[in-house]
Simulated assay, not measured.
Amino acid sequence: MNILIIGGNRYFGKRLTARLLKSGHAVTILNRGSSPIPDDLPSDAPHTVTHLLADRNDEAALESALGDRTFDVVVDQVCYTPRQAAIARRVFGPRTGRYVMTSTVEVYEYEDSATPVREEAVDPRTVTVDLDLPWDDGEFLDAHYGEGKRQAEAVFAAEPPFPYTAVRVAHVLGGEDDFTGRVEHYAHRVRAGEPIAVPAVNHPATYVYVKEIAEFLAWAVEAEFTGPVNAHSHGPLTTADICAEIERQVGGRTVLQEVEVGEVSPFSFARSYGMDNSRATALGFSFSHSAQWLAQALSETLGAR
C-alpha cells in the first residue's frame, strides 16, 4: 500500500514507519521539517521514505506539497484541533481511501466510570464543533487537549461519510526516546525518597507499551474498520505499581502522599476512566498484558537518562 504519515518522525510514529516499511509498504512522511526523518529505519526494506515538507495548518501549502499524489491510507499523528481536521478532510477527501487519526484516552476527560469506558461513551457524531475557539493559542490548546481531539474526531465523523478511524491511545510507556519526562519525575522522587503527590482516591488507568501501539497502528492501517477504537494493553496500572517497579530498578523509597487539593503527579488520577479494548479485540488485535512489558518499558526509559 501507499501510505502517508503526517508527523511520523517521533516516538511511536517512527516505530510505525519502520513497521510499515518492513511490511513492504511505500511510506511518505509529511511534516514541517523541524525534526529530521529517523536515520535508524530498516535498511533492508523494499522502499525508502519519501519526505514532503509543508505546514499542515496551511491548506494551500499542503495542497502544493502533495501535488497530484494519492494514498491508500493517511495516518495523522498530529491532528489536535477541529480546524486541522477540517483542512485534512478537505485536502485528503479526494486523495485517500482511509484516514487513521491518532486520538487519545483524554477524549474521555469528563468520564468517571466504575467500569471500563467503551467507545460509545464519546460518540463523535454528537460532539459540538466550535472552529472559532482560539485553537491557535498554545496555552489554550494545552489546556483543552482532550476537547481538541474530541472535536477533531467529530469533524471526521460528520456527514457526508468519510472513511476514518480514530485510535484512542492510552497512556504510553517505554522507549529510550520517551520525551514526556513523566517516568523521570517518579524516578527522581523515588531515588530521593521525596513525597509523590497523588489524589486521596487514586484510580488505576490503562496503559500501552510504545512498541505495542506502533504495532496496533500498523495493524489498523491494513484493516478496514471505521469509527473510534480504544487501544491499550490489558491490566490497568496504579501509581503504586509504576513506582514499585521504578524503585526495584533504581533503589530509593516510594512515598505516596495523598492530597485533597493542588497539583498531583503524572500517572495519578482522581477519576476513573480506564478504557475497554473489547472492540479492538473483537476486530482481531491481540493485546499483551502490562505485566509482560512494564519492567522492560521503564528500563528503556530510565536507562536513557
Rank of each mutant, 00 (worst) to 15 (best):
T239Q: 07
P160C: 07
Y11A: 10
F285N: 08
A270V: 07
R56V: 04
P236R: 12
S43T: 14
H25S: 10
M275K: 10
P46K: 09
A295R: 13
P42N: 08
R248L: 12
D137R: 03
V190F: 00
P160I: 06
L53W: 00
T301K: 07
T50Q: 15
A143D: 14
R118T: 15
L41H: 10
T206F: 05
P266T: 06
D137Q: 01
T301G: 04
H234Q: 08
A223H: 12
L16R: 10
P228Y: 05
L41N: 09
I246E: 11
F12E: 03
N2H: 14
V117Y: 07
P124M: 02
G227K: 06
E247H: 05
Y273V: 00
V198P: 07
F156M: 14
S35L: 13
R150N: 02
V91I: 13
T81S: 15
E120W: 06
S286N: 12
D132V: 01
N9F: 00
E106C: 13
I246P: 13
M101T: 01
S278F: 02
L173H: 14
D55H: 08
V167R: 06
D130L: 08
D76C: 09
A280W: 09
F179V: 03
A154M: 07
Y145C: 09
R90N: 11
P163I: 11
D130K: 13
P82Y: 07
V198K: 09
A45L: 08
P161K: 03
G7T: 09
N57E: 13
A85Y: 04
G274W: 10
T301L: 02
L141E: 10
Y145N: 10
L298A: 05
T17M: 15
P124K: 07
D130Q: 11
P116Y: 03
G174P: 12
A61S: 14
R56Q: 06
V261D: 15
A214F: 08
G251Y: 11
L66Q: 10
D58R: 07
Q249F: 02
E184V: 12
V259C: 00
V229H: 11
I29G: 01
I3A: 13
A240M: 12
C79I: 00
E258W: 00
S278T: 15
Q151F: 03
S43D: 11
D136T: 14
Y108D: 04
L62G: 06
R150S: 12
A61G: 15
T115C: 02
A192G: 05
S113P: 03
